[in-house]
Design a binder for these strands. Structure first.
Lengths: 232, 232
DNA sequence: CGTCGCGTTGAAATCCATCAAACGACGTGG
DNA sequence: CCACGTCGTTTGATGGATTTCAACGCGACG
């Protein structure tokens, strides 16, 4: 863990994150409230049950929002990409875990100060509302995908989504990328077991849709076929 | 379908809906922008793909937010209870269907006018943000429940949730209530088939946890047992 | 009275979870 | 450098839960 003042000038998400709604002076004031922090892969940013007194914007890397049920296995509820906002402004306790998937950087704020900023700057409230709406859409889309699709379809759709997320240009999947998730995490996200995920990835490789490079590298050999495999 | 001016004075959700954040004068101004509308069971309020130019607050009844996939069967993504807000302020097209489950009443606004109100009244933006955050929590909780739980657990948990929702006093389930959903809708919500839902309800009745009254009436005979059935 | 929609029940098939074992990558220590 | 253990992953065999296919019951409604 490390922590230092913010450097908005060089921030890679300065025009996409919630704070982009602020003008220069407002942003500087907000920046004084926050700290920049680096997270190692697997490091927990917030833990369910803890006092919910902080929130953050993801600057680089990837996070997961997850719960672990009574049997001890983890269910991933959402992936967070750069410019995403994490933290619940209205709950007394954190209800989910927020964990870094890869090496990540966040802007960390105390919740009280951030809430005060939301009251002071109405544009910030609207930006957060927009982001929350998108998160809601994302959560519902994931639910629509996971519910009543076969293991094959889930894995194929997930690989396509990751290819899109890995690409710089929107709407064009990356031809080759590294998965930010382990097999166990993929299983937790898709509602499957590790073995089933592994089998489906193997089957997709056998069918010629993808090729594996090492444990996490994926190459899209036949994106159209992968797209067909993702549909019911 | 019917439509008439709003009557906030007698509104059953006047202190819980988003507009409750406004003071008297502001609320009256907002009320002038909206129309009261009654929905019959099964009536569609918004349809996916349509221009997304309206939004609404639910006053009475129940709505579902749903998609229907390529095979034509419906996946329910969320239930909306009174005081809930529906509509997406930031998307050009509606992405999900919003349909009345039971006879319902809504306050309907044009999106443009509502967005203008959100800009004019910062408290309204914060109230919507709060509501959106809760919806997000609800969506994620549903996902956590549906993912990797058995059919028995899903049906039991659903019945408990409906008993809670049907009760006036919070946190005390109603001893007897009518399901607002058909078997097909329950199946769509829980990610199961109609037959499996039916079998599980039958099994819960055989085990003595509940009793059925007609097609939609449910009586909680042994709520503790039902609670145990809902856990893994 | 026949039909239609909705729900229940039964039998068979299928897909996935579970149990089990082996593999490769990696780091440690001999 | 190699033996060794660990961790994550892959692959195989088996069983079970749920889907699928099919039939029936029941009430509503024309």
């Amino acid at each position: 863990m490390s922590s230092s003042p913010l450097a908005c000038a060089s921030c890679p998400v300065r025009d996409r994150a919630a704070c982009a709604a602020l003008d220069e002076g407002e942003r500087e004031e907000l920046a004084r409230l926050g700290r920049h922090r680096v997270l190692a892969p697997g490091e927990t940013l917030f833990a369910a049950g803890e006092p919910n007194d902080r929130c953050a914007t993801l600057v680089r890397g990837a996070l997961k929002i997850a719960t672990t049920d009574v049997e001890g296995d983890e269910r991933i509820l959402s992936l967070v990409h750069p410019a995403g906002f994490v933290g619940e402004l209205f709950a007394p306790l954190a209800r989910f875990d927020v964990v870094a998937l890869t090496a990540s950087e966040v802007c960390l704020f105390t919740r009280a100060e951030y809430e005060a900023a939301v009251e002071r700057y109405p544009e910030l409230a609207r930006a957060l509302l927009r982001r929350s709406s998108e998160d809601l859409f994302g959560a519902r889309s994931l639910m629509a995908m996971v519910g009543r699709h076969s293991a094959r379809e889930r894995v194929a759709a997930f690989l396509l989504a990751m290819a899109d997320a890995a690409s710089d240009s929107p709407c064009h999947p990356a031809a080759r990328f590294d998965l930010p998730l382990s097999r166990a995490e993929m299983a937790g996200l898709l509602g499957l077991t590790i073995e089933t995920v592994s089998r489906q990835v193997s089957a997709l490789e056998r069918s010629g849709a993808i090729r594996r490079h090492g444990l996490r590298g994926i190459e899209l050999v036949d994106a159209a076929q992968l797209g067909r495999a993702a549909l019911p």
